[in-house]
Design a protein around this nucleic acid. Structure first.
Lengths: 254, 254
DNA sequence: GTAATATGTTTGTCTAAACGAACATTATAG
DNA sequence: CTATAATGTTCGTTTAGACAAACATATTAC
């Protein structure tokens, strides 16, 4: 065991995360970009890259571009997942402004444990999928009730109203929604996974992420010609080819 | 402006928090205790105390006991509030184990903003008060639905069931609960604030915390003879004399 | 292809935070 | 009231992380 696997510092996690984000946008991460992204001096980037390289997390040669190793990718992915779990929760459940949510997620993403992330994701997904009615459900309960001083009558009225919303909305939904292929969705649209057909590779990649029937999947970006498409699932990002996406059946949400 | 009010480091926040906790248990905080509490070398404590003293946050004389200044108390209180908001949310909403929740809260408490803390508190209080039925409400929805793959029929059944629970439970509650004095509650019991009567000092102390009718208040500890009693409200701690507590009318919860 | 510019690296410096060992003070046992 | 133990402090070191200035290498413009 040459490069020991001791816990990374917050700072190093941030570098990995930044590199992953940059690689995702352009195929290559340059020190300049990392430096700008993290608002840090160029020389600090060099230092960090050397440290990360020693630990076997990035491939680094002086004066050349940076890529992540297998292990580095795993860590960076996990950091990003934590970040997005927090961000999504803040935005979708607590109704916090996007920029502020991002900032807080940045500061909190390092100390959060796997099990909390998982529950946060389940919970936020639930809020997004289950209630319908424009996500007003939990919010309505949480905030309106609070404002109404939590008096029990108001609370009940609130719950009743919400139940109505859920029912009428789900009737509507049952009429108009039907299973569709993931490849049909446009950027920003979401669906619940109904079935993953197709060959082994993608199926495994997806099921490895703990995805079950009903998990929420969101289309982030679609390249011209619809190939490839970037999706987000359980806080992970994934790039799928069109044929692969066609093998995934979803129920469109929203 | 002698001692400038620049942001404290995480480490310094931790020292302040530890001091506040220690003072709360025994009237005095000794370096040894801080050192044990934070698992840090004794000499590091001295260093931290000197730094905090320079910033006017603790009263520090070599070889003597430590107390917090006004400003130090404010900061420590806010750190602790953040900690408890996170912890409560993890435990009560996400159903995370207490020890793990505490640990994570410790690591995340420094980066969380005021507005997020506030919403987290509202949200957790809502979950605790509104649903009744042993807090199974949100959990039931969040986790059962998730496990049931979020299929919409199951989800609805779930919501219906929960609504039933809320209704029957609140009927029961309306029969058996009635307004009572805060001073009647035993440690561990909670109530929603109905009215704060009495003189100016405590009323102000409480209302300054943003407490409104309906806010949740929990009795933490009661001294022999019921005087004083420690309570927790909106993540803040408060020590009330028996006469003061008698002026606060609450609706018992649970 | 060379000059000018942009980008990356090295070096030396700084700060915060921690540690251990040696020393100072206070508390306690007898 | 001393001797000993417990606690607190100082000092010297270490480490991680950041910065700026000077230097090195790429890139681009002409």
């Amino acid at each position: 065991m040459t490069a020991d696997a001791y816990a990374l510092s917050d700072s190093m996690e941030n570098y990995l995360e930044a590199i992953l984000l940059l690689i995702r946008e352009s195929p290559v991460a340059r020190a300049k970009d990392i430096s700008r992204h993290l608002k840090v001096n160029r020389s600090s980037v060099t230092g960090a890259l050397q440290a990360l390289s020693e630990r076997g997390l990035v491939n680094y040669e002086p004066y050349s571009f940076v890529t992540l190793t297998q292990q580095g990718t795993e860590i960076a992915t996990s950091v990003l997942q934590r970040h997005e779990a927090l961000r999504d929760f803040f935005v979708n459940v607590l109704a916090i402004d996007g920029a502020e949510a991002d900032e807080a997620a940045c500061r909190m993403e390092h100390g959060i444990s796997k099990s909390i992330v998982d529950r946060l994701i389940s919970f936020a997904a639930f809020v997004e999928v289950c209630p319908r009615a424009g996500n007003k459900w939990i919010r309505g309960l949480g905030y309106q009730c609070q404002e109404a001083a939590l008096s029990s009558e108001k609370c009940e009225r609130c719950v009743s109203q919400c139940l109505q919303d859920v029912k009428s909305n789900s009737k509507k939904r049952n009429q108009e929604t039907m299973s569709t292929k993931l490849s049909e969705l446009k950027p920003g649209e979401k669906g619940q996974i109904e079935k993953v057909a197709g060959a082994g590779a993608i199926k495994r990649r997806i099921t490895d992420m703990g995805v079950i029937k009903g998990s929420l999947i969101e289309v982030v970006r679609v390249a011209p010609m619809g190939d490839p498409m970037d999706v987000r699932i359980k806080g992970y990002h994934l790039s799928l080819r069109k044929i692969e996406a066609a093998d995934i059946t979803v129920n469109k949400v929203e």
